[in-house]
Simulated assay, not measured.
Amino acid sequence: MTVNESQLRDFTQNIFLAMGCSHEHATLAADVLLKSDLRGIDSHGVARLSGYVRLWEKKRINASPDIKIVHETATTATIDGDAGLGLVVAPFAMQVAIDKAAQYGSGWVSVRNSNHFGIAGYHAMMAVEQDMIGFAMTNASPLVAPTFSNERLLGTNPMCYAFPAGKYPPVIVDMATSAAANGKLEIAQRSGKPVPEGWVQDADGKYTTDPHALKSGGSLLPLGSDREHGSHKGFGLSATVDILSGVLSGAGFGPWVPPFVAFLEPPVNPPGQGIGHFLGAMRVDGFRPVEGFKKDMDTWIERFKCASTIDESQKVIIPGEPELEAEADRRINGIPLVDAVVKDLNELAAKFGIAGL
């Protein structure tokens, strides 16, 4: 099924309103999810909507949070999200970072007591719109085993770096630090397809292509999949995200990050509160004139785009390019949704008494 952007946006906003979110928060939360679907990151879009609802029903998401700064210097801040939607808390935090950067050159904000914040790219791109370099990262439910382990201690822990350019679109490096995001396993589950080898291991630490492996004690693997292919590097990147997002902010970290799924209870006596994020913004003109930087960014992009390739039918892809192409197409032709997601969304509509898709 393909759904028009405006229809899906209205539907999503109505679900958040039914949860008790303010109009401002419902509009923002829907925008974050729709941005993911438009950019082709289906694992983090409206397919996640029922997960937020279930957590709200369990009183683990506060639909009307009092988001506030609890510690601050001129260029840094720590924010308590009051268990609000990460879709709302993270943009609030990024705006604080941008405001500090506008005044002092850079701004850095850690967040505790939040929830899943959608795609990291949404938040980092807020800075690009102000001629700033944006950073966004978050820790997540422990599904990933560190190198040489079969114990889930880290999340998929995505990170995003966003760089403005001139005549070309910004360069957006948005990625999980695991071999694959959990949402890709969920997509494979809904479509009944196996996952590539190297994404996940079973409870004994052996490779498997079963997308349901996590349900039987398996774990996702760090970026690199195994030691011989650099999984220690993925582990290191994930650890960096966890420390900046969780340890620095006072959020949960490692195995104490609360699960996104409602049927699993949060860890007992965690060392911190909720999910943590880390966001930053740096003014380009704090280093050099903006126009000169953008011109050189365009040169950088052009040089990589014309790189010689092994296969003439394949070209070097600039980070963020596939998502931009997906967005251009989906704004015109609509957003494709698999049957399982449509069913899920229509069940939500029936629950809240609103029009379905």
Results as ranks from 00 to 15, higher is better:
Ala355Asn: 14
Val316Ser: 08
Leu33Tyr: 11
Ser191Thr: 10
Leu337Glu: 06
Asn115Trp: 03
Gly51Tyr: 05
Asp202Thr: 13
Gly274Ala: 09
Pro164Thr: 00
Phe135Glu: 02
Glu197Tyr: 15
Leu279Glu: 02
Ile354Glu: 10
Arg152His: 03
Asp339Cys: 03
Asn62Gln: 09
Arg48Ser: 12
Lys100Tyr: 01
Leu244Val: 05
Leu237Ile: 08
Val316Cys: 12
Arg190His: 15
Pro271Thr: 04
Leu28Asn: 11
Arg283His: 00
Arg39Gly: 08
Val338Thr: 08
Gly155Tyr: 07
Val257Gln: 04
Val316Pro: 09
Ser110Glu: 09
Thr209Met: 12
Gly234Trp: 05
Gly105Ser: 08
Arg288Gly: 03
Gly218Leu: 06
Gly51Met: 13
Cys306Thr: 15
Glu197Asp: 15
Met94Asp: 04
Lys58Pro: 11
Ile310Phe: 14
Asp42Gly: 07
Val96Leu: 09
Lys206Pro: 11
Tyr104Gly: 01
Lys35Asn: 12
Trp300Leu: 13
Met125Arg: 09
Asn4Met: 12
Ile15Trp: 01
Phe287Cys: 03
Asp298Trp: 03
Ser231Met: 07
Pro258Tyr: 07
Ala120Asp: 07
Glu291His: 04
Thr209Asp: 14
Arg60Cys: 10
Met19Gln: 13
Gly272Phe: 07
Gly250Phe: 12
Ser249Met: 06
Gly236Arg: 00
Val290Ala: 11
Glu321Ile: 00
Lys184Arg: 14
Phe278Lys: 02
Gly51Cys: 09
Leu345Met: 00
Pro258Asp: 07
Leu244Trp: 05
Ala239Phe: 15
Pro258His: 10
Leu33Thr: 06
Thr78Gln: 08
Ile41Pro: 06
Lys59Gln: 13
Ile15Leu: 08
Trp199Phe: 14
Ala30Asn: 03
Val284Gln: 01
Pro194His: 10
Lys295Gly: 15
Ser43Pro: 05
Ala120Cys: 15
Ser106Val: 12
Thr208Phe: 10
Ile15Phe: 05
Glu151His: 14
Tyr104Met: 06
Gly118His: 07
Leu154His: 11
Asp204Pro: 08
Gly218Phe: 03
Ile15Val: 15
Gly198Ser: 01
Ala145Thr: 05
Leu154Ile: 11
Leu214Met: 12
Asp99Gly: 02
Ala326Tyr: 11
Val111Asp: 01
Ala162Thr: 02
Pro322Gly: 14
Leu85Thr: 05
Ala307Asn: 13
Ala350Thr: 09
Asp210Phe: 04
Asp311Trp: 06
Gly166Asn: 03
Phe304Ala: 00
Gln189Gly: 08
Val261Arg: 15
Arg39Ser: 12
Leu49Lys: 06
His25Tyr: 13
Leu153Lys: 11
Val109Met: 05
Arg54Glu: 11
Ala179Trp: 01
Gly250Met: 11
Ala262Lys: 08
Ala328Cys: 09
Ser106Glu: 10
